[in-house]
Design a protein around this nucleic acid. Sequence first.
DNA 1: CTGAAAGCGCTAACAT
DNA 2: ATGTTAGCGCTTTCAG
Lengths: 341, 341
Amino acid sequence: MAERKRSVRLKDVAAHAGVSVATVSAVMRGLHDGSVRVGPETRERVQNSIRELGYRPNRAAQALRTRRSGLVGIVVPDITNPLFPQFVRAGQQRAEVDGVHAMVWDSCGEASRERAAIAALLDHQVDGVVLVTEHLGIEDLAPLLDAGVPIGATDARLADPRVDLVSEDLHAGAFAATSHLIEAGHRRLAHIAGDRTTTAGTIREQGFRDALEANEIGVDEQLIVGGDTFERDAGYTALTHLVELDDPPTAVLTSNDVLAIGALKACADRGIVVPDEIALIGIDNTPEADVAHPGLTTMDVHPHEVASKLTDIVIRRLNGTLTAPARREIVTPTLVARQSV
Amino acid sequence: MAERKRSVRLKDVAAHAGVSVATVSAVMRGLHDGSVRVGPETRERVQNSIRELGYRPNRAAQALRTRRSGLVGIVVPDITNPLFPQFVRAGQQRAEVDGVHAMVWDSCGEASRERAAIAALLDHQVDGVVLVTEHLGIEDLAPLLDAGVPIGATDARLADPRVDLVSEDLHAGAFAATSHLIEAGHRRLAHIAGDRTTTAGTIREQGFRDALEANEIGVDEQLIVGGDTFERDAGYTALTHLVELDDPPTAVLTSNDVLAIGALKACADRGIVVPDEIALIGIDNTPEADVAHPGLTTMDVHPHEVASKLTDIVIRRLNGTLTAPARREIVTPTLVARQSV
DNA sequence: CTGAAAGCGCTAACAT
DNA sequence: ATGTTAGCGCTTTCAG
């Protein structure tokens, strides 16, 4: 590796300005908080030196001393699901308003990586973390909680007095989507479930069931399929299975858009016309839903809003602006009608 | 903020095991390098203490002392372009093989944020950085270079003896795509250019022009449009403009897939049948290309390979495994034929 | 209003 | 083979 040129230290600035390091330190932080410990002409002189030498504080040293890294973690289950880049961007942008940077962690859909995220983020002394997980329970958060790191999460199974929750209303989303299908006249409805070990998978399935019941439509267990993953191929396979049934459904709700896109692909490959022969509705309103053909009707789950709110809460907790007990906020998905129903 | 429980320090482990901190430190690092400074029974005892107390080293302290943060930066121009999540994931996974974590930076398509990335990453003492930028010149990298931080980049304009480059062959990609159109019998070809202030925008346009020339087809400047951004709406607008021309093109190459998806949308909205009335080819082979209707023919630019190689080089440079002069590697895009041509 | 000095937790000489 | 110790660059009492 190349020789690292020694960078400008507080001490260098102090020498250059003819003051002590304490003064320079005070000036540096005076830029942020409005504290006035330094005389105006001294401050001026120090600021010039800072500028001239191009001083930038060493974050590692600050972190060691203050136990603050200026970092928040943002954990998402699968960055290749187009829902999450939107989420990440919104969170990152909110964080930077306060000069906080984000460490983005992609769990690649694996429970083990979700667990690894906790340890890794803690090692890097993140000041807070925004958690979108599928497999974690509150017990997995113990290290973070013990360290007093504020946590904002989306998953209801992480409900705890020490974690702030901003969740989408999973049940209402699935219920509304199913109702939309029913209002369009469908009576034989199928559901392609996502991973049923996750909260989203379970609750959305329940929302589907409850919507049928509310409309006095019996649930045909044959028509509830999939349930192992949220991935595209699973949607493809599940739809293929459904249409091969003796009495196939006329409409299907998938647990998310990625599954729906896979299902749409299966229809295209078999020459099944959507929505004429079968109607399809997804959940998430990913950018792909708009690109697909026909345009995928789906539920917008407002990732931008959820991410911003969550990050906002976490940041306000870590800088002490927010001290109220953990809150639980619910955002309601809204229907985006396109052409697949 | 909640009270942070003081975490286990090296000193605590030392006390627990009845040895000095130096020994514990040696044992900790002995886990990584194979150095043996510690006797087997001492080592055993120390490892037990480490386990029992659940000791995890303080990265900030390590970073301060060793000038190594265990962090690499991965900078991408636009995380919502589905090309980049793939890139990020591949880079992140390669990094973690060596226990290095990645700080992902999304430039949101803005030059100012690309510049900000350099400063922010440097502040956090990243040990290396993988750079996918659109607007940066080598002069922007000075702070990183001065600090001796190894840099791996994709953009040819960053060519420098101190930066490793793994680039896609932009010219060949556009040339091959254009040639594919010509081989399909098209003679009236248009190009929807991406941001022409970027390397990709410029070189791909050149590849398009050169392919026409190589086939003795004159370039009609009217048919080269767009050029300000790589975004979807620009593709939509540009295509709309093209088909309204007196003598519209029969085929178009867009500078990337995102533009192509926009163009495809414009066709769908106007009832133009692709590929019958107009053929369309993109570049990038994003997941959306496969979802679109008709399937978008495009060039695979191998983001996984580029990201892995780049991250690999950066990591080997920072751990001293790679000391050879900066290399320049080129990966060649390959055609993925779907239904849009 | 400003400076001196004590660490934050760790690594790496240097001693023993 | 193991221990002692001097910092890494910064913040933060505590004196003056």
